[in-house]
Design a binder for these strands. Sequence first.
DNA 1: AATTCGTGGCG
DNA 2: TCGCCAAGAAT
Length: 348
Amino acid sequence: MTASGENVASLLLAWYDAHARDLPWRARPGDPAPDPYRVWLSEVMLQQTTVTAVKPYFAAFTRRWPTVEALAAAPEEEVMAAWAGLGYYSRARNLVKCAWAVAERGGFPETESELRGLPGLGDYTAAAVAAIAFGRRAVVVDANVERVVARLFAIAEPLPGGRKAIRAAADAITPQQRAGDFAQAMMDLGATICTARDPRCLLCPLSARCEARRSGEPARFPVKAPKKAKPQRTGTVWWIVHEERVWLVRRPGSGMLGGMRALPDDGWSAKGDGSGEPPVAGEWRDMGAVRHGFTHFDLDLRVMALSGVARPSDEGEWWPIGELDAAGLPTLFAKAARRAMATARGVR
DNA sequence: AATTCGTGGCG
DNA sequence: TCGCCAAGAAT
């Protein structure tokens, strides 16, 4: 395995030297070294999130908070609002906690194990930052690496069980030098050539050693366990207006959309439908509904409107409707707000 | 170990 | 339209 491992790494690094994607968080030729802050921030944003979705957020964050110290000094609610729309909001909560810890200790730790102890850094991200930002030899396994490795070695055990074998194989082909470039090369290969559907084997620098390609059906790998069906849920949000302002609340710090500003709702969740019971009595008007798909359930959300209430609940704030973009609403509530405003204007 | 966490794009 | 998928982590 060693000899073939070295071959795979050198073939891949040569391909990377010629074809690496130009991404905003990567060190440019002429840069002295990668900036650990930018590497960390990009890696957290990229967890389960596409490069296209991350780019504008990365630009906004680094412009507004150029260093980890600047981010650590920012009010948490401003960071949460800036994250709005990117999803998986526990990442934003952990991002803030991590920035505090790093600023406190005077910089990022450089070893994989120390990085692994920071909030929001799991096995993947700790390895990626150690390798990319600090040049450490680390085994970086994300969904791209899983796919490339499963195909290279035709690992047929279904995920998630097959992850142990995949990790061992990834370890075996990870070089001692340039582990960060190797990781990024694997991810670039997975993103542009060894794609999930219809891999472009004719362009692949590793095709000659790929057992999945030899099998004739490379797209069959990695094998995955069947997924559970998604429940369909229904719920209601309350669009309560008063003098060109709308009543917003903040969601609890944990759980779905935790810590984010939101429209008040009737308690819908992944587990069950909302009650449909309005928070205050009045002449509610049906503004229509929006559909939203979460990872583990689909939601049909009705939007009900009311005006003329002085103070709907103890906790909350009146937010100017004209400045709703700055409220930092998760996409679900932004959709509901658009629905309410469109209906109020008479648009269906 | 299995669940619970968003969102947008693509075939 | 719809299921799949994306630089996973926390519990």
